[in-house]
Design a protein around this nucleic acid. Structure first.
Length: 619
RNA sequence: AGCGAGGUGGAGCAGUCUGGAGUGCUCGUCGGACUCAUAAUCCGGAGGUCGCGUGGUUCAAAUCCCGCCCUCGCUACCA
């Protein structure tokens, strides 16, 4: 039987900087879509990559004292590494510098040229000699270059044009015939209106730099940007029969190029058109635009580090906002999803069920806990990814309600436990495209099962030993915004104490076992250096000497109000060495210092271990 | 300026295209249940004139139309 093919792409990213949350978003969604279609049994192909060419890359490379190729070669591993850290499994990572792609672009250029769609003309633009760059009218400040503040010149350059104007009617016909070509649908009218306003022919070559694909019919020229970049989608397949793509996933900023230039290019060379171009929205960061200049870019390492779990990041990106709309990213929103949904709902369901099964076992029966696959699948087909997850989590809620109602811990009803085990198996299968490594962890606990649509209906194997094992997610304690110091932990406890006090009338922190206490690695350390942190009115950045074994460590401590730098340097303190590292005001804090404080924080005093050697244990 | 998106209980969002009792979700809050589970889970309550015009259409408007106010993003290669 021939499997149905499915081909999904991300844009090829511009490797002039390391990848960030925006890149990750498109790529994660593409991965989710690819995995979902694999689940359905399709023969899936998933392409991502980088756009290595262009003047900007050439310039940036020169500034860095590298050749463009060296410069790009150095950045590519950062992209591949980021995708591996996000659990992304693409079939090919294409680069526009790949030989097969360059050859393909040249052959496409030739075809288009032979068809009379490419002609030599003159590009006239406003040029700044200092920048060696063209500007548009609106870039200018009082007719001057915004960087050099000098007047720009009108310059003419020989360049090849693509006859985009010729395709206006055909494009409008395409939008009319294929309603899904521009998705989500609300973006359609925008494009249609702009196309109706008329299309200008497009300059597709340059002679002013040479970092690009040479035009086969005129070697003085290199291909400029879009013609080169867009054809990666055709170059990148392992087998020509995969084209056309089922879906191009893109950000909303490049929808014009993908829904106007791209189909026009393809019509010109006689290739089939992609079935759908889907433009998603953008992320803001704490409600501000993500921008490098403001330091708001969140890179992949930071994204994963917040919860220490790539699946939580993937889940957040899929779940937090309707796909297609803009969304806001914040650390606390991510942690809320992680703790509240993944851990409390899913993790806890698995935890309590496996625990009960370990004690009482299961007995096969017809399960009453049935999930509606068709409804979830149809949401996925429309790329309503957040809603699909919503449905899956509604089923998880149903399972938690079911346990509550059936009380298997009291009844020891093995049939109920079987139903729950079967439900969890199905949940793990359905969640596999979104949070693959978590689903694998669940499968491990249940003796392993395959992640396929068919697996949903396969009865659960009762002979397998089911283990409770470790929890699926680790709880992330969020710090109070006003207490970014190391004292926040204490403050939080105080809060809880007050609550318990109210409930029981007893002041207590609760009991911990010695084993729990022994998990803390407490050491004597000496303060070597103290630095101020920009924008932080409570924090010091403190460098510690923690003896030979541990060495130097950096911590952030909110004690600026209580100690001067001179007070601190040379002082011995008690250091909590294996506290999970955490970023504060952009500085990674590896642990905390111990201090006693009054309830209103009016007095704070660092604990003094006396003259014991650095690195000594405290217990 | 132009284009686009949004304004829904204390917070964040669905719901608006295809009008039908303010319906839903997450967090917070209050009360209860449970004690299998990572202080997790479950049930219930309080809390909103769905930005404004007490505008229009309609038997019926969060939803459609008009006007206004406010917030945010984009304007060409940063998703």
């Amino acid at each position: 039987m021939v499997k149905e093919k499915f081909y999904v792409t991300t844009p090829i990213y511009y490797p002039n900087d390391i990848p960030h949350i925006g890149h990750a978003y498109t790529t994660v969604i593409a991965d989710v879509v690819a995995r979902w279609n694999k689940l359905l049994g399709k023969d899936v192909y998933f392409l991502t990559g980088t756009d290595d060419h262009g003047k900007k890359i050439a310039d940036t490379a020169e500034a860095a004292g590298k050749s463009p190729m060296e410069f790009v070669d150095d950045l590519i591993p950062k992209f591949k590494d980021a995708w591996s850290k996000m659990g992304i499994e693409y079939d090919r990572f294409i680069r526009t510098t790949d030989k097969d792609h360059e050859k393909n672009v040249q052959s496409m250029l030739q075809k288009s040229y032979d068809n009379g769609d490419i002609y030599l003309g003159e590009y006239e633009g406003l040029y700044c000699i200092g920048c060696e760059q063209y500007y548009t009218e609106k870039d200018l400040e009082d007719g001057c270059c915004p960087i050099h503040k000098k007047p720009v010149e009108k310059v003419k350059e020989e360049t090849y044009f693509f006859r985009l104007s010729k395709y206006q009617d055909k494009l409008l016909e395409l939008y009319e015939k294929n309603l899904e070509f521009i998705s989500p649908p609300r973006r359609r009218q925008e494009i249609i209106n702009r196309v109706k306003e008329g299309l200008r022919d497009l300059s597709i070559s340059r002679t002013s730099f040479d970092w690009g694909v040479k035009l086969p019919f005129d070697k003085k020229h290199v291909c400029y940007v879009w013609f080169d970049a867009l054809f990666n989608y055709v170059s990148g397949v392992d087998d020509k029969s995969r084209w056309p793509a089922d879906i191009h996933l893109i950000g909303k900023d490049i929808i014009w190029f993908h829904t106007v230039y791209w189909p026009a290019f393809l019509m010109s060379v006689g290739e089939e058109l992609p079935k759908k171009v889907f433009a998603h929205g953008w992320w803001t960061f704490d409600n501000e635009k993500i921008s490098k200049s403001v330091g708001k870019v969140i890179n992949i390492d930071e994204l994963v580090a917040i919860t220490g779990n790539k699946d939580s990041a993937r889940y957040f990106l899929c779940r937090a906002t309707p796909f297609g709309d803009d969304g806001d990213f914040s650390e606390s929103a991510l942690v809320d999803r992680h703790n509240g949904e993944l851990l409390n709902k899913l993790g806890n369901l698995v935890s309590r069920t496996t625990g009960l099964i370990e004690k009482y076992g299961v007995e096969k029966c017809e399960s009453g806990l049935v999930v509606n696959f068709d409804s979830i699948n149809s949401l996925m087909q429309n790329l309503e990814i957040d809603k699909a997850l919503n449905e899956i989590f509604a089923f998880i809620d149903l399972c938690n309600e079911y346990i509550q109602e059936k009380k298997p811990w009291a009844t020891q009803d093995k049939k109920v436990l079987y139903e729950l085990a079967d439900a969890i198996k199905n949940i793990a299968i359905l969640l596999y495209p979104f949070i693959p490594s978590t689903s694998e962890k669940i499968a491990d606990k249940f003796g392993g099962f395959k992640f396929t649509k068919e697996g949903l209906n396969l009865p659960f194997d009762v002979n397998i030993e089911i283990k409770k094992g470790e929890g699926l997610f680790v709880r992330i304690e969020q710090e109070e915004p006003e207490a970014i110091s190391q004292k926040s932990g204490i403050k939080k406890k105080d809060k809880k104490v007050n609550k318990e006090k109210k409930a029981e009338g007893v002041m207590t922190l609760g009991e911990v076992t010695f084993e729990d206490f022994a998990k803390l690695d407490l050491r004597v350390a000496e303060i070597k250096e103290v630095e101020e942190i920009e924008d932080a009115d409570k924090l010091y950045k403190i460098s510690l000497d923690v003896g030979e074994n541990i060495g130097a460590r950096t911590v952030c401590a909110g004690i600026k109000k209580y100690y001067s730098k001179e007070d601190l340097i040379g002082r011995k303190i008690v250091y909590f060495a294996n506290l999970k590292p955490r970023k504060m005001k952009g500085v990674v804090s590896e642990g905390m210092l111990f201090a006693a404080s009054t309830e209103d924080d009016s007095q704070v005093s660092l604990i003094n271990p006396g003259e014991i050697a650095n690195g000594s244990q405290v217990s």
